[in-house]
Each structure stands twice: as C-alpha cells, then as structure tokens.
C-alpha cells in the first residue's frame, strides 16, 4: 500500500464512528511551566507526547508520556535549560456514575541529570467526570503523591496533583483532548547535614491532543 493511499484510509477510519469504544490513543502537544526551590528558578517548556486510554467495565487505564524541553524564562536565575521525560499513569475504578477512585505513578526524569529534580511517586486519588453534552466529557482529579523520590534527595510529606480534563468527540472516532495538571511537592532537603531547608517543586502542564477511538 502506498503512502498516498494510507492517508485517506486512516482518515476514513478516523471519521467512522466506533460501535463500542474501549481504547483511545493519540498524540499530544504539551505546554509546561516548572519552578523549583525559589521563585527565581523558573522554566517554561513545550514538547510532544502521546496518550493512551482504555476501559473495560468499571475499570479504566490512562497513560501519558511526554518529552519536554524547558528553558529559563526571562529573569530566571537559571542559565540553561533541560529536557524532561514525564510518564503519568492511572488505573481507575468507577465507584459511581460520575466518580472513580484511582491509583497510579508519576515519573519525571531530567537530562542533564542535576539541572532539575527527577521525581518518582505513587498516585492515590479520585476523579469526577461528567458528560456535558453528546460526546463531551469534563474530568476533575485530585491525587496525593505518595512516597516521592527525588534524584537530589530529600522528602516531601505533602505532595498533591490536581487535574482538569476535557474530551470532545470531533467526528466519528476522532476525539479532541485537553488536559491540565498542576502538581506541588513540598520537598525538604538537608544539604551537607546543615539542617533541613524547603526546596519545593511546582509544575503545571497542559496537554492538547487528538485521539483515535477503537
């Protein structure tokens, strides 16, 4: 099959409505803001990624992988940017028609390694979702980030993640998605044994994408 023929075929498949949609997958464009330790250490970035969503009965699985390039904003104390690869994953169970409980993981790795904190944490939380129209659903989630691990050491007793999501069926199997996430980690560290100091981390991410339902 030639590439010229593959394009219209994929478009036709995308515009055909799915009978019982269980899986959706698609690319995402990402905007992000990252702050660490103090207000002077600020980065802004963007990148691309992909997302996968699947459902079976009351269970649903969601995963997103993005690669971001961060650059210091004007006035930032940082003098160089970094790239980050972030993986978010959730497994949810519907406890009501409009609510689920969920667990998952958050993992963000940074390159170069010590230009920012690499993080790994477990997620425990809940989400509420509501269909506001034919094929349009809004989601709000709140997760507690448990047992976070930082590449630079330290701990964070209180780490939270908030999210807002939107899924709109554009045509047939084709969906438009928009997801907002804000996470805040009250990291405390003890550099050189001189006593604990606050080194909070705060990130906001917006993912805009398309998804194909199957």
């Amino acid at each position: 099959m030639t590439r010229a023929a593959l394009g219209p075929l994929l478009l036709a498949l995308a515009l055909r409505p799915a009978a019982g949609q269980l899986v959706a997958v698609g690319p995402q464009f990402v905007l992000a803001d990252y702050r660490e330790v103090a207000s002077g250490l600020r980065y802004r970035g963007n990148g691309f990624g992909g997302a996968l969503w699947a459902r079976r009965n009351r269970f649903s699985v969601e995963a997103a992988v993005v690669r971001l390039s961060f650059d210091p904003v004007a006035g930032s104390a940082a003098d160089s940017g970094f790239t980050a690869t972030q993986v978010d994953a959730w497994v949810a169970y519907d406890v009501a028609a409009y609510a689920s409980i969920e667990v998952g993981v958050l993992h963000r790795s940074v390159d170069p390694e010590f230009d920012a904190q690499s993080v790994g944490a477990l997620r425990v939380g809940a989400r509420s979702f509501y269909q506001i129209g034919p094929g349009a659903t809004v989601v709000f989630r709140a997760n507690y980030l448990a047992a976070p691990k930082f590449s630079g050491g330290g701990h964070a007793a209180v780490s939270l993640d908030l999210g807002l999501g939107l899924d709109v069926r554009l045509a047939g199997r084709l969906h438009g998605t928009a997801t907002y996430a804000f996470n805040r980690m009250n990291r405390r560290t003890n550099p050189g044994g001189t006593g604990e100091i606050d080194a909070p981390i705060q990130e906001t991410v917006a993912r805009l994408g398309l998804a194909l339902g199957f």
Binding site: L31, R35, S39, R42, I132, D198, T204, A206
Partner: peptide
C-alpha cells in the same frame, strides 16, 4: 496549592484547558 516561595504559578496552561472546557 501554589507555594508562596515559588511565586504565582503560570496560568497559561489552566487558561488554555479551562477556556476550552468553558467554550465546549
């Protein structure tokens, strides 16, 4: 949840997604 020591966070991301939700 914004940290006072990190300053006001960027509202660009929330504005984008929240605006899309309101328009929808």
């Amino acid at each position: 949840l914004e940290s006072s020591s990190l300053g006001s966070s960027s509202k660009r991301e929330l504005g984008l997604v929240g605006g899309a939700a309101l328009v929808t």
